[in-house]
Write a protein that binds this DNA or RNA. Structure first.
Lengths: 120, 120
DNA sequence: GCAAGTAGTTACCTTATGGTAAGTAATGAG
DNA sequence: CTCATTACTTACCATAAGGTAACTACTTGC
């Protein structure tokens, strides 16, 4: 997987093993923005992830102490996910990541547009 | 894999596909700190990564336009890696990540220490 | 008694990923 | 003539990761 070693010498390795990996930062970003989301709501916002993998990521984030899982034994059941206090400490990083992503995306679209105009 | 989709609707997906993945953020962090590093110097700082995988990561970062590869055809050859301008824009994110990582690491060590004292 | 709805779990199979070891190029040293 | 050096590349193999489909539980409504 994305990270199996815990923390040898460098603290950064540890955090990377927890929050990195295919869909993980995006899940954190969703929960950072929307406070609380049900399993199905996360799945809707990430159409390309399978239930199996989403469950896996949520379980790992829970094990890392970054998200809370609140199971309500209603019928049908309701499970709410939210960031823990530690998870919320990632806000600045996630925000910064999104800012850069948005900026690059705009720049790239701009360049694509220019290229199309130049090509006639 | 870590990222195959380019950018469907959300710009964050794109950046995650580029900088996420097992060792990638750590490589960027090294280059952000040390300006320029040779292949072997990066390898020394990351003892657990194999040459094959390190090469793969460097090639992908180069393809994403985040790092420069400067091949000097000396004997034996010298290859210097450094961040591009775009790569340097990740400074804030990498710094923030490292800050959180360091803080959590200290907190966890503190807790471990407390537990040991409590256990006698 | 059967379908619907939520949040999964499980089994099975395919693909992706990563490790190891060996090979390559070019040249100066011994 | 062979070794050492750097930065890889290649082939081969083992493991990990992920997709799909089917199945679970529980109760309301038809």
């Amino acid at each position: 997987m994305t990270g199996k070693n815990k923390h040898n010498q460098c603290p950064m390795e540890s955090i990377l093993g927890q929050i990195m990996g295919p869909w993980t930062p995006y899940i954190l970003w969703l929960l950072d923005n929307e406070k609380t989301l049900r399993f199905g709501e996360i799945a809707t916002r990430m159409p390309d992830i399978s239930a199996k993998v989403l469950t896996d990521r949520l379980r790992k984030l829970e094990a890392s102490g970054l998200i809370n899982r609140d199971y309500q034994p209603t019928v049908p059941p309701t499970v709410n996910y939210s960031l823990t206090e530690r998870g919320r400490e990632l806000h600045g990083v996630l925000q910064g990541l999104n800012d850069v992503a948005t900026r690059w995306d705009e720049e790239d679209r701009q360049k694509e547009g220019d290229a199309e105009i130049a090509a006639g």
